[in-house]
Amino acid sequence: MKAALKHGFMLICAAYISLPIVIVCLSALNGGRSMLFPPKDPTFARFWEFFVSEPVWLRSMENSIIVALASATLAVLITWPIAYDQWKRNTAFSRALTGLAGLPFALPPIVFGVGLSFLWTFVGGLGNIFTGILSHTALLAALPLVTISIGLQSIDRYHLDAAQTMGADEPTSLRTIILPQTLSYTLSGFFFVVVLSFHEFIVIFFVSASAYSTVTLQIFNSLRNGFTPTMAVGAITFLLVSIAVFSAVARYGDLPRLLGADPARKDN
């Protein structure tokens, strides 16, 4: 009885969370130009439009992918040494860098977006996709920083001792023990950035200065003409990417542990 109540509550929450998403997804099937629910004259024509016939969506999809992959790569490259230094040496300098790297994520994104738009206006490059990449790198670097730090902390120090007694110096340990053992954590951080960058709106809104658009921007820009079912295809695509990525993280990494569950408690 109690268990039924619990599961009932959880399922109601899940339904509440899924409802708008499901509605968006189903609206993609609308035959006409307007977003109706339930969809009228169901058709898959909108998918054709999104992925093939309307270049504006293709281009923004391309931009989304470029920004997401590039900023995720940069974020991992920047945060790896910071996390490693903090873990290995824990100096005041490394702690300061850690704090700085996590700072943008903790602020209201609109403030950071405004600041970035000033920065790129002054140094040039506002509206250049490269500054968009850097902006997302800064905004989302906190995520790989956290996952990599968790990964480093999960390394058994005796493994490093063992490697040392077998002749490994610090660079060798880094290459043969630390990097392979933190690979899944690094990848998780990478994919967290990819997914959040896909969906991020306000910062890229400020720094793109309408010179290019990602999918979220394109949707927002098209809103003035009302929602169209083609946008919903974008939502479906992104949703599927998110689910695929997080499932992969859950499958190959320890998702509960990444989110802070007690590592010792494997089963309960």
């Binding site: 058994d156 005796y158 493994h159 001792d161 063992a162 040392q164 007694t165 077998m166 002749g167 490994a168 110096d169 060798t172 023990i177 392979p180 053992q181």
Partner: peptide, 20 residues
């Protein structure tokens, strides 16, 4: 002489075998 130059073989309490 650091451990990686001494290269005394060591067996650890937890064995410290590399899972990867």
């Amino acid at each position: 002489l650091p451990a990686n130059k001494r290269k005394f073989g060591m067996v650890f309490q937890s064995f410290a075998l590399f899972p990867h």
